Computed example of a mutant assay.
Amino acid sequence: MAKKRTNKYKKHIKQSPGSIIYTGENPTDQLFINVYDYGPDFINKFELKSVKDSFNFKNTKSVSWINLNGLNHIQEIESLGKHYNLHPLVIADIANTSQRPKIDVYDDYIFIILKMLYYDENENIKIEQISFILGTNYVLTFQEVEGDVFDNVRERLHVSSGRLRTHEADYLLYALIDAIVDHYYIVNETMGNKVEDLEDLLFNGESTDDLGLQVLKLKKEVLKVRRAIFPIREIIGRLEKNENTLIKPNSVQYYGDISDHIIQLSDSIEIYREMIWSLMDMYMTTINNKMNEVMKVLTIMSTIFIPLTFIAGIYGMNFDNIPELHYKYSYYILWGVMIIIFFGMMYYFKKKKWI
């Protein structure tokens, strides 16, 4: 039975513009809020129980990273957004997990949506939307569920001599985006290995019955990764050219490094995309070749039995006046003629290289 597809946009029907509606499929019972508040000489980590506890980090001299897990908690997200003066459409986009990666620049903050990609233990591609709000001295991140690719960033925050502790919030945003992009390389490598494995199976003639389904599944994975990565070039380009004071001049070159990585990943994805189309063609060619081989064998068998059936048909008629019927050795002669015809036709087919 085919899997029933859900319509995420159905929730928006008859709703007013800017309505905050969670469209994801991973609701959490509890809202998790983690805060890293740091400066060159200190770092503090907090696990908040209420969204109101995060309001105190807006106008501090330190840099604060406030990470929220649980996009289905609409009221808390709306409360946080109002305190940080976020536009209602921004809050609506945070809860809408089917958004395309994008960037919106406002006077006092920058809003970015990216896709976090990873493979689960069964090597199925998983896509999670993550939203960023860059303010003067803070970065807000909104995730659907617990678990992310930022462990390396958290470890670097505890190193007092690192750049993260000595730079401002725009560098923290760069580090978080860079962590997501670095994880794209792992996804890209895994996907490349899958393409090469399928290619080896086809070239070695070891194709299985579900090989076609594997190729189609991999094709869908490549398209998902492509949709997640390609828009980032535009996002980084706008950050590099942005005249907003939130992005400091000394941080622009770091975003340029991300742009180089995205270009490299995009080229790899395009190569994999072309390879998968070739695999589809190769798979169909293999299926057709196998069908042709079967048809060739059946045709040869039919061709061999045509004269034998003709002879058997003649001497199988119920006429009394067939001269050879009453000859003592007719049966053996008929067998001899049939055997000679069989081997003669096999020799002829072999000589023509049809078999």
Rank of each mutant, 00 (worst) to 15 (best):
M317Y: 14
S330F: 11
F310W: 06
W335I: 15
G336T: 12
L279S: 04
Y331L: 05
Y332H: 10
I306W: 02
I340H: 08
I300G: 07
M280N: 09
N321M: 12
I287L: 06
T309W: 10
I314N: 04
W277Q: 14
L279C: 09
I276H: 01
F319S: 07
F305D: 01
I311V: 10
I276G: 01
V297M: 01
Y315Q: 08
M295G: 09
D281C: 01
I311F: 12
M280S: 08
F343C: 07
V297Y: 05
N288E: 04
N289I: 02
Y283T: 13
E293S: 13
Y347R: 15
G344N: 07
G344V: 00
Y329E: 09
I304M: 01
K296L: 04
L308N: 09
E324V: 13
K328L: 13
I287F: 00
L298T: 10
G344P: 04
P307N: 00
M345Y: 09
T285S: 15
I311T: 03
T286Q: 11
L279I: 00
N321F: 13
D281P: 03
F342H: 02
M280Q: 15
M295T: 08
I304V: 13
L298N: 10
P323Y: 07
S278W: 07
L308D: 01
Y327K: 08
T303E: 06
F305M: 05
N321V: 14
I341V: 02
I341H: 04
W335C: 11
L298G: 12
Y283F: 15
V297W: 03
A312V: 05
M295Y: 03
V294K: 15
L325F: 12
M345G: 07
F342G: 09
I340A: 13
L334I: 02
I300Q: 03
Y283V: 12
M282P: 01
M284K: 11
P307D: 08
Y332S: 11
G344H: 00
I314K: 03
Y347G: 08
F310D: 01
Y329P: 02
F319H: 05
G313Y: 09
I304E: 06
